[in-house]
Design a protein around this nucleic acid. Structure first.
Lengths: 155, 155
DNA sequence: TACTGATGATCAGCATACTGATCAATAACG
DNA sequence: CGTTATTGATCAGTATGCTGATCATCAGTA
């Protein structure tokens, strides 16, 4: 059991979330890993729509509604109706959102280091590389694959 | 973002769960990764109580109630009042549970291989080793740490 | 232009995970 | 023995994630 990738994946994620939440709370904030990722992506991509955002950070499209709900409730982002497509909502970070994002970054970085504190620097880099490689090969297997930023049309 | 251990952990777990569910469903079963782990642990530890089970597979104690509820509803396990401690429930696998566990094993093993199909055999082994090492160092950081089987008293 | 299909968002329902509380029963102690 | 602390289990509440459905809107085509 203890050498099954699936079990280890669940366990590592479990610890990663706990470390993230602890660091962020110690810094005086109340933001989940998923909320942080969404906030950062919105900051980097103003007026992004929810589907594109989902692709950027590999969320399920139905999950994102609730995440944005909670970010909006905390006044960190704003949902705005799109002018050119009335189905979609444009997402924008607020001033408070931007301040929060900046202030929280050190805690997030500390959490990343803590997650792999049992590894040497070389091992940590190797773990990251191997996870990236495995993820790339399995990207299409989940309902929420990563979609590269649209950018200029790829053929 | 794409080299943050926390993000990669979430993504790898996401794929691992999707692969597991797909393989198990293709084999004709309806069991989640968590339910499988619990079922296997109960099979290997007859009359285990829920708290000890939680420690063996690193579940939160409040999560396990629902998991066992669902396994019991599928007639795969039975909850029995303990004679020596009336607070606790002894968990036992049923005949159907044992048949299911045996029949499902090939699908579970196939899923484990699929999760790391982008890696060479050596890389997969290294990923497993590094995750184990990181997890061991972070074990106490989550609310649901792994607890070694009680076995004969450790001092 | 009317129809058809695709798309963005949301919803209902279910299964993990967690926080923190409660309750019954047991263990530990004076 | 009785008080206190601990422990096994559960519950309420919240946040991901997923399946599958619905609704409004848009795009493409006959």
């Amino acid at each position: 059991m203890r050498d099954m990738p699936g079990h280890l994946a669940r366990r590592f994620q479990q610890i990663a979330v706990a470390v993230f939440l602890a660091e962020v709370e110690a810094a005086g904030f109340d933001l989940t890993p998923v909320q942080y990722a969404a906030l950062a992506a919105i900051a980097a991509n103003p007026a992004i729509d929810q589907i594109t955002l989902a692709g950027l950070i590999a969320y399920d499209r139905t999950t994102i509604t609730g995440v944005i709900d909670r970010l909006a409730q905390k006044n960190l982002v704003v949902r705005r109706a799109s002018a050119r497509d009335r189905r979609s909502r444009e997402l924008l970070i607020t001033e408070e959102g931007r301040r929060t994002l900046e202030a929280i970054t050190p805690a997030v970085e500390a959490a990343q280091r803590l997650m792999v504190r049992g590894l040497t620097r070389t091992e940590a880099r190797e773990l990251i590389r191997l996870m990236q490689k495995a993820i790339a090969a399995g990207n299409e297997l989940s309902r929420a694959p990563l979609r590269e930023g649209a950018g200029p049309e790829r053929q």
